[in-house]
Design a protein around this nucleic acid. Structure first.
Length: 889
RNA sequence: GGGAGCAUAGCUCAGUUGGUUUAGAGCAUCUGCCUUACAAGCAGAGGGUCCGCGGUUCGAACCCGUGUGCUCCCACCA
């Protein structure tokens, strides 16, 4: 077969994804009627469902890649791997996009549509865009179980959400009430506190004159000046307020002031809340449009005048500027105040404004009747799950402090949204506004009749839908039907899931609430580990966004570099928990790595054609047997290392380790060692070992780069199995001695090259070598390898007690090759004294460590054992050095 | 205002109980090589007061204190 010069990903990727699907490798075991799961341990991951609104961005790509790596590794380690895909209906975000689309593409206004019609359009949208996301997940190579796709508006899921709402209501954990909430004037809906993002903006502070009513007998002036950022809310003022200890204003006690423009009299009140030193020390109280004012209003029993409509225009209650947009009204009001001489001054001022996360407009604090979840009770078990260590947060517990703080200070959750796209709140009202909560209209009627002793009354369902997170928080449970069919086989088997991989930005929205729901409905954590990935930013550290155009298109990247290279690139530079600055350079590195693998495969294929029976013909100038032993041990060493790293979720380090094993150890050393001389063929047995090692490194790499590894696995030889399901065998402990010799060899060869350069020895000059050792046999491979590297005239072994140093003589000069472990007695006295000094201080430390109470208490027994061993080694070396010194003297 | 984190080569980052590191990798730069798997490669080179200062220690990139700079989260100062 003719192999292409370079690796071409496109065809390969499509071929293998289809093949894996056709073999049902991604399918977790069925647990329905037919099959009980076998006795393999289970590894469950539920995908953080992306919003159906768009396409996968780089943050998703990172998440999905991390999950796929963990899932594939688990699958190859004997687990029944179950990775559940799906998407989120993303209530407000999707509704906003559908409304937008309808207007732009069809010229339809939402208000001209019935709820049913609108939902039809929304579902059409979901079909179209949900497909795009699923396609991207496929192209990335994610081994998700497509038979388990869930969508948060699926029928069963919808029922689950309603069931949970009713249940929490009946438990008294959901209530309806008028509270100050955050209002999105663009989407015309309530928001939860978490959906408001605060941004620093420069605004203006306007100083406005309020006349004192009546004669102002007690006052020395006839007006006061009040600073505000929001002059358009003065029509909603119901008081002005000063600090009771502020001498400037105490005289105003009992007075009234006149709100400008509308000439309304409001009282002067006093409250400790007011900061004497800010602004003019007196502020206007607008209970309808500010949370602080609202609280003061409650305390002082002030009326509430809501001067804003749902869309952010001025309401009739304001009396003036009715129907003007709030920001236009602000300008006009300032103008009018200025004309009337009531504007004292304007000041530049930076403040933080709350923006709706989805529509990006300034959110308005607004008093509104909404549905809320009481959070305190639910938070307690969720807090305990993390503090007790039942759930581990990675990396390194970085976010557990944030998590704890939020839960300890959690406020009630506003869950109703004035939207259509979502689960409609299962509350039914009569004409008077009396209501009941039930899972269906029939049940509602039943309860209503019983409760209010009525008969056959018409009820109307609440128009609002639930916050999208009120459905997502059930995700790890309901994807296994754990709410709608509690105790079914799937939920019992797959729950709790193994690990949740997600962005740190949704720790409150989703992670904390999932833990609450898990504890409430399963009495069990939803996952054992949480791994937070960082934000993906562009090279300049900016957030990826459409407006900036710095968010690359995933499919385009895959087209350009190949899916494996994209996965490699995003993982290799992915510091755990820190933000990742996306750089296409690392994707390029991945592409080069693909090619390296491809060429190594080509080399083996070349050898395959002309290999010889054992011992037949290959020039026996290299000790291939040692190369094989060494690489085998090196491989084991790396496998152990990688296992540890992956258990600690240090995936980028694991990938780096594998990369270096393949590039440096396998390609640059192993394949070069066993490479036959030009024109000769390779020994069959050695060839087979090489193929078998290649299999092993491919297996290690497969979770990270699934496509090319599977392709090469099959090109290397005919197989009946596939790499994706090849099970890792038990790892043998590597032999330290062999690894040491291997390292020493590398060191030697490098030194010889250096020596050549430094002493201007040409490659073909003769180099004399003296190797002094107490273990001639183990250095035989060094001799063999060296003879390949240099034209050796003489390699001399000498056995001396207590020595294991190596001396290489190049020309007339001696070069000492030292290692830190072994003692080189041919060195100079100064060096020996230095070594002695070092060892003695080293011993001191160990003694101190062993004596240190805290250390002993915390350390495991084996660590102490290790310290003792270090100590006795050091002592032995000291004796050697001291003997040598005395012999030098 | 409260909390968390970060600061190591031109860039992105490793460096996990302080000791085989006179600080490593990849990219970028420079110098040789189209050498019979691989120029998407190979062989080399240059480049670092490990943010400043102080402390603990025989020994600090690592621990402690402090200063500076940056990022993020939370919070009701008009």
């Amino acid at each position: 077969m003719e192999l292409s010069k370079n690796y071409i990903p496109a065809i390969v990727e499509e071929k293998w994804y289809k093949h894996w699907l056709s073999k049902d490798y991604f399918k977790s075991l069925p647990t329905g009627q037919a099959g009980e799961p076998d006795n393999r341990p289970v590894f469950t991951v539920v995908v953080p469902p992306p919003n159906v609104t768009g396409v996968l961005h780089m943050g998703h790509t990172l998440n999905e890649t991390v999950q796929d790596i963990l899932v594939r590794k688990a699958r190859m380690s004997g687990f029944n791997a179950c990775w559940v895909p799906g998407s989120d209906h993303a209530s407000i975000a999707t509704e906003a996009k559908v409304v937008d689309m309808l207007k732009k593409e069809k010229g339809i206004d939402k208000k001209d549509l019935s709820r049913e019609k609108f939902l039809k359009y929304a579902f059409e949208w979901k079909e179209k865009y949900g497909g795009i996301i699923y396609n991207q997940i496929e192209r990335l190579g994610c081994s998700v179980d497509w038979s388990r796709v869930n969508f948060t508006m699926d029928d069963h899921y919808y029922k689950a959400v309603i069931k949970v709402f009713v249940d929490l209501y009946n438990k008294g954990l959901i209530y309806r009430g008028a509270r100050m909430i955050n209002w999105d004037p663009a989407a015309k809906t309530a928001l939860s506190d978490e959906e408001v993002e605060y941004k620093e903006v420069t605004g203006k502070l306007y100083y406005i004159k309020y006349k004192i009513a009546g004669n102002g007998q007690n006052s020395t002036t006839d007006f006061i000046t009040i600073a505000t950022q929001r002059p358009e809310t003065i029509m909603g003022d119901t008081a002005v307020c000063a600090n009771p200890n502020d001498g400037r204003y105490t005289q105003l006690k009992g007075e009234k002031v006149i709100v400008p423009l509308i000439n309304k009299e409001v009282p002067v009140i006093f409250d400790d809340y007011v900061d004497k030193d800010f602004g003019t020390g007196i502020l206007k109280i607008t209970p309808a449009h500010d949370i602080n004012d609202y609280n003061i209003g409650l305390k002082h029993n002030l009326p509430v005048v809501d001067t804003l409509n749902e869309d952010g225009t001025i309401s009739e209650a304001a009396q003036i500027y009715i129907s003007e947009d709030r920001f236009i009204a602000r300008k006009k009001i300032v103008e009018e105040l200025r004309e009337k001489g009531l504007l004292v001054k304007e000041e530049e001022y930076t403040t933080r404004l709350g923006y709706s996360q989805r529509t990006n407009v300034v959110a308005e604090p607004k008093i509104s009747t909404q549905w809320f979840v009481k959070m305190k009770e639910l938070a307690q078990p969720a807090l305990e799950a993390v503090t007790s260590g039942k759930i581990n947060i990675h990396p390194r517990d970085k976010f557990s402090a944030t998590y704890k703080y939020w839960l300890e200070n959690v406020k009630d959750w506003c869950i109703s949204r004035q939207l259509w796209w979502g689960q409609q709140i299962p509350a039914w009202y009569d004409e008077d506004g009396k209501f009941v909560v039930a899972e269906s209209e029939e049940k509602a009627k039943e309860i209503f009749n019983k409760q209010y002793s009525t008969n056959n009354i018409q009820l109307k369902q609440d128009e609002d839908v639930l916050d999208t997170w009120f459905s997502s928080w059930l995700w790890p449970i309901e994807v296994f039907n754990g709410i709608t069919d509690p105790g079914n086989k799937d939920i019992n088997y797959y729950y709790p899931t193994s690990v949740l991989v997600t962005g740190q930005d949704i720790i409150f929205f989703w992670v904390a609430r999932m833990i609450m729901a898990g504890m409430e409905y399963m009495n069990e954590k939803p996952f054992s580990d949480v791994y937070f990935t960082g934000m993906v930013r562009d090279k300049q550290g900016r957030k990826m966004s459409k407006q900036l155009g710095n968010s690359p298109d995933l499919l385009h990247l895959i087209h350009e570099y190949g899916a494996d290279a994209v996965r490699f690139g995003i993982m290799i530079s992915s510091p755990a928990g820190n933000d990742l600055l996306f750089d296409e350079g690392s994707l390029e590195q991945g592409k080069y790595f693909n090619n390296k693998l491809w060429n190594a495969m080509k080399l083996l294929k070349m050898w395959e054609e002309k290999q010889l029976a054992k011992g037949n013909g290959q020039l026996a100038i290299t000790n291939n047997q040692f190369a094989i032993e060494w690489f085998e041990n090196r491989l084991n060493e790396v496998r152990i290392e990688v296992d540890i790293l992956m258990k600690q979720f240090r995936l980028s380090e694991a990938l780096k380790t594998i990369y270096s094993l393949i590039w440096d150890d396998f390609c640059s050393w192993f394949l070069e060692w066993i490479k036959p001389e030009y024109g000769h063929s390779i020994d069959k047995e050695i060839y087979n070992s090489a193929v078998s090692f290649f299999d092993d490194v491919l297996q290690l790499l497969h979770p990270f780069m699934p496509f090319i590894t599977e392709e090469i696995y099959h090109l290397l030889k005919e197989r009946n199995d596939d790499l994706i399901i090849k099970q890792f065998s038990a790892v043998n402990q590597p032999e330290k001695k062999i690894l040491q010799i291997g390292n020493k060899l590398k060191e030697l060869i490098t030194s010889i090259r250096d020596a050549r350069n430094k002493h201007h020895v040409k490659p073909k000059d003769t180099i004399k070598l003296f190797i002094e050792t107490d273990d001639e046999k183990s250095y035989q491979p060094i001799k063999d390898i060296l003879s390949k590297q240099v034209n050796v005239e003489n390699i001399h072994f000498s056995s001396q007690p207590k020595t294991s140093s190596i001396t290489i003589v190049v020309g007339k000069e001696k070069i000492y090759i030292e290692t830190n472990i072994e003692v080189d007695v041919t060195a100079q006295k100064e060096k020996l004294l230095k070594d002695l000094d070092y060892l003695k201080t080293f011993l001191n430390t160990i003694d101190r460590k062993l004596r240190n109470d805290r250390f002993v208490q915390n350390a495991k027994a084996e660590v102490i054992e290790l310290e003792r061993k270090k100590k006795s080694d050091a002592e032995a070396k000291i004796r050697v050095i001291e003997q040598s010194l005395s012999s030098l003297n």
